[in-house]
Amino acid sequence: MSAVFDAVMLLLLIATAVTVARARDLVAAVVTFGLYSLVLCLVWQHRGAPDVAITEAAVGAGVTSVLFLLTIAKTARSERR
């Protein structure tokens, strides 16, 4: 059960990471990156590292997303082709 959970989470991590790298729309990339952080937070918690999980949720999924979105609002939303 635990191994299944780990496997699903790691596959989700890979999927979200690839999605972030491939996204042309930077807002979509930021939102997916928040999802990546959230999944990673679950992995940390599951591996018995709640300290890291709290930080990952607050900084990775929360504050970083806000700062990224502000940066996009100040620059360009779409990656130059």
Partner: peptide, 25 residues
């Protein structure tokens, strides 16, 4: 609470900083 109990339970300065910062935002 996360700061105050950081030396006993999960939590501490960095976690507390992120939470206070998010509240201020």
């Amino acid at each position: 609470a996360s700061l105050y109990r950081g030396h006993v339970t999960p939590g501490g300065g960095f976690q507390s900083a992120a939470i206070i910062g998010a509240m201020m935002i």
